[in-house]
Design a protein around this nucleic acid. Structure first.
Length: 555
RNA sequence: UGGGGUGUCGCCAAGUGGCAAGGCACCGGGUUUUGAUCCCGGCAUUCGCAGGUUCGAAUCCUGCCACCCCAGCCA
């Protein structure tokens, strides 16, 4: 991989563990729950876990933490694998599932019971909440806390056999109801859920909680460094308590880092799901979504996302990254790698009065301004062309470096032209510009010494092709749609998508491969839509615009 | 007001007692057949605040303040 050797506190901890002989190999894991699509925050975790394993010649497992069948589905299991691979990572061996350890987990639950460290509790959810106490008041022991080992074993067996209703009983660890750490107040280990599981079918009607599953899964897989986000910090004592009280085959350690927060963005599976479910976007992979599949469809490359994760670093502080950094990462990649092409978004016809009607010249244009090896392409130059409506004005001040009546402009990779007159419709709208070609100006300045003021893109009206282009803007107009009591659904930018059906592209572009990126010169980076682009009906998505120091504030 | 964390430029982030890296953003200037790229220059006498230790502190000590997380049979 082209990742830099990530230098963060976890890298240092691991290097130290290796040096001190605490571990002889590094084993990490990426443990998503298959209850939604992966988003850019997961990309950070993926780069971290796979990157660390790679940096130390260790391995990284992909493990589905599928302990709650109510929220999970095979669709998510599939999409997650695709996203991880697309990002450029390969997990060690087969995909793992927490559900494949259910029997072992159950055996360990019995072990805890036999040792007097767990009990079946008949309190319902409401009662349990009352007994739990509050942040400032200790909890109260459950009246079922002191059942005999025999009774507990019997009850647990019957829970598993499906004798009791959902919610009627749970298995709890017997720790300390007065602990200042809420997670240690006899946490729930198993709950009854009579629903089918996407991997284990109807084999089980009791399912382990995250707390009872995660550390043990890590131990089973020989994970050395179990990396999770900050909010699990309070769970670490429980994670360790369980490992201390169970005959596990290895001793993993948990470390936490600050999850990625991006401004103008929502990164919460629940909220992303709501955007999808309520039709605000066209699906999990809508190009406006911060999901990995959405960014992919938008035109972000895996390399740019890895670069971005590199740029933001990994620490224990929890901040908000400016989305401009992610935009920089993709611009940087595409500037270097995307072939150039021309596209006219809002076509305005230009007729070159002194250019023969039946003539077509093929002008050669480099595909990249600084990378000759990317080759050249041929551009059809004809009497009738399209330029962008925004690139013409009847009159303008000297700061306007485009076409103005009576003035000259350079057509990119072609001639300098001079505007002579305009044709307007009844409404006074300009529908056509009459202009003349300045002879011998392909590759040369005008011989009369009157230079063009600027350069604009163009496409032959007769040889070019029509295309659908989707322009995107940020999905949220608010910097922190997620924050506090903000109603993120009300902060959705109503203009996040602008559909342009009649854009005009140079002919060669219809043969673009789905997911191929281009820079449409002077406009931005665009990608042929992964699903909808076809030669007969080209569809391009705007990935990101070019930096524009003129458009900002002016115009 | 219990417990656990975090506070270095607008944002991210190095720095672990020796005199504030880097990136993003922003602001100049140069090159340019993309108002892009590229290049050059600017951008924290100061590290949440207040004391203290020390020849010397972002780094050590004390106190305070701010923000984040925890009372799901979610993860």
């Amino acid at each position: 991989m082209d990742n830099k050797p990530a230098n963060n506190f976890l890298h240092a901890i691991i290097a130290d563990d290796l040096a001190a002989g605490r571990v002889t190999e590094v084993v990490t894991r990426f443990p998503p729950e298959p209850n939604g699509y992966l988003h850019v925050g997961h990309a950070k975790s993926i780069c971290l876990n796979f990157g660390l394993a790679e940096a130390f010649n260790g391995r990284c497992n992909l493990r589905f933490d599928d302990t709650n069948p109510a929220k999970e589905s095979p669709e998510f299991v599939a999409s997650i694998q695709e996203d991880v691979r697309w990002l450029g990572f390969e997990w060690h061996d087969e995909v793992r599932y927490a559900s494949s350890y259910f029997q072992q987990l159950y055996d360990w639950a019995q072990h805890l019971v036999r040792e007097g460290n767990a009990y079946v509790c008949d309190l319902n959810a409401d009662q349990a909440r009352e007994y739990r106490g509050t942040l400032t008041e200790p909890g109260v022991n459950s009246p079922y806390r002191d059942r005999s080992v025999e009774e507990n074993l019997d009850l647990l067996e019957r829970m598993k056999a499906g004798e009791f209703e959902d919610g009627s009983r749970v298995l709890r660890a017997k720790i300390d109801m007065a602990s200042p750490n809420m997670n240690m107040r006899d946490p729930i280990l198993y709950r009854i859920r009579k629903i089918e599981h996407h991997q284990t079918g109807n084999d089980w009607c009791i399912y382990p909680t995250y707390d009872f599953a995660h550390g043990q899964e890590d131990a089973i897989e020989g994970i050395t460094h179990s990396i999770c986000t900050l909010e699990f910090e309070d769970h670490r004592p429980l994670y360790n308590w369980l490992l201390d009280h169970l005959p596990v085959p290895s001793r993993p350690r948990q470390y936490e880092f600050g999850r990625l927060n991006l401004n103008y963005t929502v990164t919460s599976k629940r909220k992303l799901k709501q955007l999808v479910d309520e039709g605000v976007v066209d699906g999990w992979d809508d190009p406006r979504m911060p999901t990995i599949s959405g960014l992919r469809r938008r035109g972000y490359t895996a390399r740019s996302l890895r670069k971005f994760c590199d740029m933001i670093g990994v620490t224990r502080s929890d901040g908000v990254v400016d989305v401009a950094m992610m935009e920089h990462a993709i611009r940087d990649d595409l500037n270097e790698n995307a072939p150039r092409a021309m596209c006219v978004l809002r076509p305005l016809k230009v007729v070159l009065s002194n250019y023969p009607e039946d003539k077509t010249e093929y002008l050669s244009a480099p595909c990249h301004p600084s990378r000759e090896e990317l080759g050249v392409r041929e551009l059809a130059f004809t009497r009738e062309l399209y330029i962008d409506a925004e690139d013409f004005r009847e009159e303008a001040n000297k700061k306007f470096k485009r076409l103005v009546l009576g003035k000259r402009v350079r057509l990119r990779n072609a001639y300098v032209i001079e505007a002579e007159s305009v044709l307007k419709d009844e409404a006074g709208e300009i529908v056509e510009v009459q202009a003349k070609v300045i002879p011998n100006t392909v590759g040369n300045d005008p011989e009369d010494g009157i230079k063009a003021k600027g350069v604009i893109q163009w496409v032959s009206a007769t040889e070019g092709r029509r295309a659908t282009v989707r322009l995107y803007d940020r999905l949220f107009s608010h910097e922190a749609p997620d924050k506090g009591d903000n109603d993120f659904m009300a902060l959705v930018n109503p203009n996040s998508l602008e559909l342009i059906e009649g854009a005009w592209i140079e002919a060669g572009l219809v043969n673009a491969q789905p997911e191929q990126s281009f820079q449409f010169e002077r406009e931005g980076y665009f990608v042929a839509d992964r699903h909808e682009h076809r030669p007969e009906a080209p569809v391009f998505n705007m990935t990101i615009g070019l930096r524009d120091s003129w458009n900002n504030g002016q115009k």
